[in-house]
Structure formats: C-alpha cells, structure tokens
Design a protein around this nucleic acid. Structure first.
Lengths: 210, 210
DNA sequence: CTCATTTCGTTGCCAAGGCAACAGATTTTT
DNA sequence: AAAAATCTGTTGCCTTGGCAACGAAATGAG
C-alpha cells in the first residue's frame, strides 16, 4: 500500500497532502485495492459495513428494488468518487445496493481510527460527505417535481455544461427512467414530444437544449 | 457559554463526554444560544453558512418551494437534532430553507476548527451526519413509490412504534402531503378510502394501522 | 454472417391522482 | 362570543403518465 501513492494524490480525499502523508495515512486507514467485475455487488441494501471505498476506475450504481420489483436508481458514481464513508461512522445499514456497472478498481479503506487520522484528511472527508449529501438533495429535488416534463427538463439543465451545447448524461434510457422515477416508455414518449416541440434534441444519451 | 453545560450533556453531539470536556469544546466551537420566533428563517435555500446549530427546543422544518409555488417538505427537526453540520465543511449552498415551525431555542456552533476538536466529538458529529443522511434516504424511498397508497402505508409503518398501537406523525395534513409529494385533497381522499377498507384508523395526526 | 439479446421508440388503454371549488370543523384573534 | 383564519374532508372533472405489447434498431456472441 505504501507504493502507488501517485494514483492517490489526485483523489479529493487526499487533496492538499504530500505523497509521504498520503502513504502514512493510507496505511493508517488500512487501505487495500481490489478489482470488481461488472455486475458484482459491493454493498447490499440493509447491510452494515465498516469499510468505505474510493472508485479508482469504472462506474458504480446505487439502487434499490421495492417489493414490486420496481427499480429505483439513487446515484451513479464515476472514477474518483467515494462511497460508504457516511455509513462507517454511524451504525445505520446501507440504504442502497451498490453494484458495479462496469469492471472496476476499488481502493478500500477502514475501519478508520479517527485518533490517528490527519485533520486535513478529516476535512476532506467531510467535504466529500457534503457533496454526496448534495447529490442526494438533487435527487429529492427531481422526485418532488410532479410533472414528468419538468422533471426531465430540470434534470437535463443540471447536466448541461454550457448553454446550447450538447452533453451526455450518465444513464441509458432505463437508468434515466429509474433515476427520474418514471416509466421508461413514458420517458421516451415525453422526450420525443419535447423534440417534436423543438425544446430539445437528442440521440441516445447525448442531449441538447434549444 | 461555559455555564449551562447541564443542558448539553444529553445531546448526541456531546455523548460520552464529561461536563468539563463539553464546556471546553463548546468554547472551542464558538457556541452561543439564541431564541427564534415561529416563522423565522434560520437558513435560506441557496445560501452558504459557516455555522451549524442544535435545536434545543421547538420544531424546525426544512423545505423548498419550486417555481410554481409547490411546497416540498424535506425534513422535520425536533429538539436535540442538529442542522447545517454537513454544510459547513463543504462549500455547497443550503439545499433547503430552514424555518421555525414554533418558537425555538438554538445552540449555534461554528466555525469549527477541526484541529482543536476532540476526536470523540468528531465521531459523534459523523454519527449525526449518518442519521441525517439516513433520513434523506427515507424521503427518497417515499418519493420513489409510485402509488400514493403504498407511499402512505410505507410512511405510516415507519412511524409506527409498536404494531397495532396508535402513534402520531409530526405533520398536519398539509405538511404530510408536502412531505409525501402528494396533493392534500388526494391524500385526504386516499386516507378515508383506506379507513373505509379497514386498513387504518385515524384522527388528525394520530394514526393506527389495523 | 446469422442468431440472440438488449435497448429504444411508439401507441392504445385506462386508472390514479392533480386541481378546483366548496362545506364543515377547529383554532385563533379581537 | 363573534368573527376571522386555518385545517380537513368531499366530490366532479379531466389530464398525466403507468402499463402492456410490439417492432425496429443496435449490440454482442458463436
């Protein structure tokens, strides 16, 4: 673990720390790497965990399936993002199931001994928690919009980097529908209506607001 | 501030700490008390803050109003709960507006210097963040249930302390509707249907599952 | 290349529930 | 206590969008 800190120094968790500090902290944090195949489940809904992780490579998805089998996608994680870091300090079970959407490389951390942890790292950790908290609020924002059209538009606007330019969303139709709590066919229908009215243009997961 | 630690030692944030430690930490945390009248806004959506707080007495509500004036209630806080503790370590703006639903007493804390903060207190803080995170996931769980009836039932089950016993929910009809993302009249209609079918019984904000 | 599998679009049907409007009940104000 | 304001229930109307079913397109496997 004390090797390969080069890959770690660009991670938000280690921001502002020297390689030496990182190596020492990663040691104290009991870090180790693993590979996960597409489809693997990293954390199951309802389970507790004492480890959190950083996604070094690949894509993860946090989701939940209700009694009727309806899939609800809560989050999508891309490289550099962290997961489980909120769980390990409370004894709450995981609210979602975390699955590898592609082959992944993970850096696992924990259990974390706060006494031995750098204040700088704790600050970074808290900032990361803030981001995740924010993402969750976004999801709630979408959920609480009644009209599907407005829900879609809000979602798209939030993903638009610069006005009028095309952009990608990190979902296929199914995923997008599950994230927006909508029926896939209803989503398709509404999207093509919106294209018909000249509001948007799109192809696959690339969109453009007009 | 170094007085009146008696009231603080039962707060989750100070769990497991001696009065002496609490007094020292509360000092380091720049704590001070304030009173807020019913209707006061403590934090406004979109604003950043470097202070967080603990609700010593009263009730707070976190909510958001969309462009069309639709109210969405995100959380309700009762005495002992904390707010804003996630915000102060990230530079995210507040995702909700926090309003006093009744007259309140608040203990304000921050800005927090992590270097000078007890590890025990940080652990407590992280545990509290975990609870809030969990509550947010609950809200998402409700949101993502399509059928209003199931949404109501899930919500009620989560508030039922012991099976078959009556229990209160911390909302009036309007609040409950806003929290469940439903129309108030639709909620009333569904509730009386459910009563008609012998599923539940209720009066005002007291319910019973049958 | 062919067959299989997954993904995406389309459309008809229909029920859930949003919306508006009103009435009774309850609470607060004066 | 009277009046005002707020809260809750009820009901009719009608749109939104869930559901199912199917075909086309795209992707992948053998």
């Amino acid at each position: 673990m004390r090797t390969l800190t080069a890959e770690l120094k660009h991670l938000p968790l280690f921001a502002g720390m020297t390689e030496e500090e990182i190596a020492r902290q990663a040691d104290a944090l009991r870090g180790f790497r693993s590979r996960e195949e597409k489809g693997n489940i990293l954390i199951r809904e309802g389970e507790k965990t004492e480890r959190c992780g950083i996604l070094l490579e690949g894509t993860l998805q946090g989701h939940r399936v209700d009694e009727d089998g309806v899939l609800s996608v809560v989050s999508t994680l891309s490289a550099g993002m962290m997961f489980g870091e909120i769980l390990i300090f409370s004894d709450q079970p995981s609210p979602v199931t975390l699955t590898a959407l592609t082959d992944c490389r993970i850096l696992w951390l924990g259990p974390i001994d706060l006494q031995r942890t750098d204040a700088r790292l704790i600050r970074n950790l808290l900032a990361l928690i803030g981001s995740e908290y924010w993402a969750l609020h976004q999801k709630i924002r979408y959920c609480s919009i009644v009209s599907l059209r407005k829900r879609i538009l809000t979602f798209l606007k939030d993903h638009e980097a610069t006005p009028k330019d095309p952009f990608s969303v990190p979902f296929d139709r199914n995923g997008m529908a599950a994230y927006l709590n909508a029926d896939r066919s209803a989503l398709s229908r509404e999207l093509s209506r919106m294209r018909g009215e000249g509001l948007i243009d799109y192809h696959k997961n690339r969109f453009r607001l007009l």
